[in-house]
Design a protein around this nucleic acid. Structure first.
Lengths: 183, 183
DNA sequence: ACAAACATGTAACCAGTTACATGATTCA
DNA sequence: TGAATCATGTAACTGGTTACATGTTTGT
């Protein structure tokens, strides 16, 4: 059946603590947002499906009409099963690099703007990760090292983009007619 | 209408030289494969659509039944138009980091295997990019610097993954019960 | 003669987003 | 009392892959 991706994320998030579908999405956005995403349109059907399969159990929440979902024992087993499955990554689609590859048709100045933009986003990610790291360090839990591993991955990636952006900007600057060193 | 992503890739690839749909896919795989992908199921309908819109023109190829597609003037304009549009990146879905985030439920040894696998893929990419770089350096063309920019992006990313993998392996090694420094 | 590569296209399916519809609760 | 937030869910759509069906040409 293999809607495995979403199932995994939902089960994994619920393994931390029981919550409503709404909170689930918030948790995914907050904790996994740097490398994962789920929308309501995925989450609610997934919960229903997982309940039918006996992997989550649902109780009434504090608010009228709200439901709090928690992992069952079978659900915990299923979670480990899904975690063990090989990670399938979606086919690459990097719009920035596609544009730069055909940058000659776009012009060096427009390319520099694209690169500067990417640099900015990497810089922002780095700042955000610094905050996440600070928060994470506060808690004492056996999961901490795993949290730090994913944070570190984000940091390595961001620093790599920044270094590439700087190098690339220099290349493009040398290419712009106005700055060309003809004199 | 915004099937813009595929349209852009097809128009861009055809801007280099006219070719058949089959060759188009090969070219995309070979030249853009590190950061882009298109399947036949996308390419053929896209070509039909772009021809109806007057952006590509089609002539008979050498083989019976084969069609060679080329960019029209309107197509070239359209290409630049699409290149100028902001690059929309798909929502992140990194199965590796998702698994590592919940690595405590998976165990340090399984995590190390995942990391080692990722390191291997980064290493392989690096080797492949070295070959691509060698090939690219041979040709003398105004597009060369742009080719090199995308290659460099891949190299930076791959090196970042390798550094992260090594760092992470050390962390996980210290976590494995067998190696734990209790003595 | 046969296999591999070249070539085109469609249909079925899948994953996922977005927009919509609806309503309760909290807080200023 | 009204806005923001919490909460659930569906329907329509989009973008994309995979598998299939079909046939030609090239090379061995």
């Amino acid at each position: 059946m293999s809607t495995a991706q979403t199932d995994l994320a939902v089960l994994a998030a619920l393994s931390v603590e029981p919550m409503t579908g709404y909170r689930l999405r918030e948790a995914i956005l907050r904790d996994l947002g740097a490398f994962w995403s789920e929308s309501f349109g995925q989450i609610y059907p997934a919960i229903t499906r997982l309940r039918e399969q006996g992997f989550v159990a649902t109780e009434h929440g504090e608010r009228t009409g709200s439901s709090v979902h928690r992992l069952t024992e079978a659900g915990r087993t299923r979670l480990v099963e899904l975690l063990r499955e090989p990670a399938t990554s979606p086919p690459p689609r990097n719009g920035l690099l596609l544009r730069l590859f055909f940058g000659d048709a776009l012009g060096p100045e427009a390319c520099r703007a694209l690169v500067a933009d990417a640099r900015g986003r990497a810089e922002a990610l780095l700042t955000e990760l610094a905050a996440v790291r600070r928060d994470a360090d506060a808690e004492r839990a056996p999961e901490l090292p795993y949290r730090l591993i994913t944070i570190s991955a984000g940091e390595h990636a961001a620093r790599a983009w920044i270094a590439w952006a700087d190098e690339t900007d220099a290349v493009l600057a040398a290419l712009t007619p106005a700055t060309s060193p003809v004199r």
